[in-house]
Design a protein around this nucleic acid. Structure first.
Lengths: 196, 196
DNA sequence: CGCATAGTTGACTACGCTCAACCCTGGTGG
DNA sequence: CCACCAGGGTTGAGCGTAGTCAACTATGCG
């Protein structure tokens, strides 16, 4: 998760790293921008998303402090999604060409990057799987199972955020949860959900 | 696209490669199987997909002769989707551990794999984007734009396959196309579609 | 010419979205 | 201590659109 942690890079590479501060809501790059760097998030939180032609935002995934992201940028010319800060953030900009050169020299770094890319692809498939479930009930159920360690889930985020992740309206999510409860599939108390 | 073309591997690695023949419709691996190898498709065609809990198939992408695939398997323990032959096929099985070792020795190979992983991730995001368009009309339009070089598209595959890729029923696809035609957005003659 | 298959059209249904009202909780101030 | 308010969450009614199933048409092949 930290392939490009700058302090693990060689000194001459570190010298090329720039930092950028972002306000909450500010964009780091937009879909279609020329991809000139890959990144590592020092502090804060970002989300990667795109917009449909009618302006709806579609979330890909969130980046938390300590993670590198947009490794894909090393191998394509334009960013394929938009990155927006969800909290005040500080990001390390890792310029493309020097990093590519370093990858040729350092198999350990290359392996980290491969792991990271594989992980993201895996996650993307899981997301695709989730999103391709049509019914709200089953989509929510699948989501709960994904995020449950053993038999119960603590819903940390507000319902409207969870609804966003599920590509549902808050109303649809609410209805799906009550339905699952009525069916006796889950039980709820406050933000705690458990399977029966 | 051919990172693991066996004839480009060292002789001792080639010695470890096994081949497997598949009938049309036969599975190479299932989602959840222990991931022990990555693959290269010599001849034929495969599709990668998963099944929703109610048995619907959801396509990820197709593999054509000459492509390597399932590189992700090198870095995760279980396949995250199912691979099924769409035509009689011959597949090279590249065992995980020796390949991982080779990647540490050969930066050129590692770079190929990174490129391939990045490409797949890019494609997955494009698919996610397509699938997250709600209305059939706009989804079809987006698809047409994606697959059009300049102003027109030749629809090579039968409509029911295209509908599958779009996660629509053939009926919905048909209606969307006639609607776009009535709106004067596209014109159709046989399987040729052009923008107006 | 007749049949099989792909594609289209029609009628109906189901389900998620929209918008609005309502409820419940926690926090604030009188 | 309680009245008030604000926000997140829930419930309700109506609508739109894709799915379903069936009938029909067009195309290609024996």
């Amino acid at each position: 998760m930290n392939s490009f942690r700058p302090d693990q890079l060689s000194a001459d590479l570190q010298a090329l790293v720039e930092y950028r501060k972002l306000e909450s809501g500010q964009a780091l790059f937009y879909k279609g921008d020329l991809a000139q760097a890959t990144f590592w998030l020092e502090t804060g939180q970002l989300k990667l998303l795109h917009y449909t032609s009618d302006g709806q935002a579609v979330n890909h995934y969130r980046i938390r402090a300590g993670e590198s992201f947009a490794e894909v940028a090393l191998f394509i010319n334009f960013y394929d999604c938009t990155a927006i800060a969800e909290a005040p953030s500080r990001v390390a900009l890792l310029p493309k060409q020097p990093i590519l050169a370093a990858l040729r020299e350092r198999p350990d770094l290359a392996e980290e990057v491969m792991k990271q890319l594989a992980w993201r692809l895996h996650q993307a498939k899981i997301l695709l799987e989730l999103r391709s479930i049509r019914s709200a009930r089953n989509r929510v159920l699948h989501y709960l199972k994904l995020s449950s360690d053993q038999r119960s889930v603590q819903l940390e985020q507000p319902m409207r955020i969870i609804a966003e992740d599920l590509a549902l309206t808050p109303e649809a999510l609410s209805r799906a949860l009550t339905q699952l409860e009525e069916e006796g599939v889950i039980a709820r108390q406050r933000r705690m959900v458990q399977f029966l």
